[in-house]
Design a protein around this nucleic acid. Structure first.
Lengths: 251, 251
DNA sequence: GAACAAACAGTCAAGACTGTCTTTTTGTGG
DNA sequence: CCACAAAAAGACAGTCTTGACTGTTTGTTC
């Protein structure tokens, strides 16, 4: 029923291994690296487009423009491929996270902007791929064993980043839980996005949550610290009615 | 890789059609009804246990203790089966929701208790089945068309119930968004649950969320209503350290 | 440049899944 | 009791997926 058609034949050879200008040869290490990279990227792409059930080794090899033999040489079994894809995807997500953080200038780190950033991460294609893996791992013990540790590490990393971006003080009781709640919220928003464009509703929710979160953080803040708040916006919420529309990538 | 083994042969004939004690016959209408019910329940069960990819028509019929021919008689194609399963699952979720609401006595409707109720719904097996459908629908246009309207209706219903249980006043600006955020939060928590037992962390998050939500609802309340209680629980939150452990069904 | 190993290509067999078809059983109406 | 239709059972064909297998090309090393 998912109309298992044949993939479009190799849209992008893309990662062409750099040949030595003198000999015209491509070193083995480079060839291996390029080939594996193409396969893994293709695997993630297919995961996003066709979902877990639609991700067969055949489709991946076709998508990567790689012969089945070559694929089986680098990844002897489908398990090997998937495990490597999980690692690769984790790396991609980590990179996406850090680059997004870097792209957000220090002076623009309002709570709303940070929420928009997170929402963008959790509604993008990379999240979709991760979602497919989570759900698949739910009923596949072997996959679960691979996914879980990676997810744990990345989750903690995301948490740390969020704390830093929000300028939250985790020493304060309840702050840690609020940050976790925020991340679970955007996870839920990411899930809602899978059923259709949800950007308008999401923007309104994030607007309100930013206000609420600011109020809550300020409250737990002033309770034990000095009354001056280091963050940009204090108790009085800045920009009350601005709808900070996060850029919505079309899928 | 999900080890596509043969299902355990018919654990439960369960829904046996009531035979007429006189003739010993079972009327056609009853047979049809019972057969379809068994198939749909089995379909949901398999969805929970094996995930979308592992839900083949063969497995479902085996699980239901129904011959493949009988199955194909009632549901000519897999699409027919799945569509019916989506409707069935929606009905089950609606029933689960209403009965859960009914089971919560009016005097026990603290914010925390309501959150616990929602979390229970969104971490149970029925949510798991729905999750499988959402994710599968993401990359299956036909399925998406079926799932979306049902999901929209049930989502609104859930929203209404939540508003009622929380005693929130949606006329107040921001309240609607906070309720939506709450539902998206539990969705995210449900997602986190799929990767392993998350009940302890969830309990802490919900504790804090209840406090924050109470404060926020009260605040938006007092802002436009009578001016009593400005920042009530700012200093001393009610029930500071009670961990309201939601009953965690083992999966 | 010759020998060796890695990389790459493509075919094949076994099994699983869906959906069609034929046959048998069971209930219903006359 | 009989004729007919619905229900149930099971065999079968076609397609798809996985992984094993054989053969060819390319890089490396002595």
């Amino acid at each position: 029923m998912p109309a298992p058609q044949v993939a479009e034949p190799v849209t992008e050879p893309a990662t062409e291994p750099a040949a030595d200008p003198a000999t015209g040869r491509v070193p083995q290490g480079e060839r291996t690296r390029a080939m594996r990279a193409r396969l893994l990227e293709a695997c993630v792409d297919v995961l996003v487009e066709r979902g877990w059930a639609g991700t067969s080794t055949t489709v991946v090899s076709q998508r990567a423009g790689v012969s089945r033999g070559a694929q089986l040489h680098h990844f002897p079994s489908k398990t090997d491929l998937v495990v490597a894809a999980v690692e690769h995807l984790t790396a991609v997500r980590r990179e996406e996270l850090t680059s997004a953080v870097a792209a957000l200038p220090a002076e623009a780190r309002s709570t709303r902007a940070v929420l928009g950033l997170l929402a963008e991460l959790f509604t993008g294609p990379v999240f979709a791929a991760a979602l497919e893996l989570w759900v698949a791992a739910r009923s596949d013990a072997a996959l679960l064993e691979v996914v879980t540790p990676f997810e744990r590490h990345l989750g903690r990393e995301t948490h740390r980043f969020t704390v830093e971006l929000l300028g939250a003080d985790e020493e304060q009781p309840g702050v840690r839980e609020l940050v976790q709640a925020t991340l679970d919220l955007v996870r839920g928003l990411g899930l809602a996005q899978t059923l259709g464009d949800d950007s308008a509703r999401r923007a309104r929710i994030l607007d309100q949550w930013a206000l609420t979160l600011d109020a809550a953080l300020a409250r737990t803040d002033t309770r034990t610290r000095t009354g001056t708040r280091t963050g940009t916006d204090g108790a009085a919420p800045a920009r009350p009615d601005i709808h900070w529309t996060d850029s919505q990538e079309t899928r």
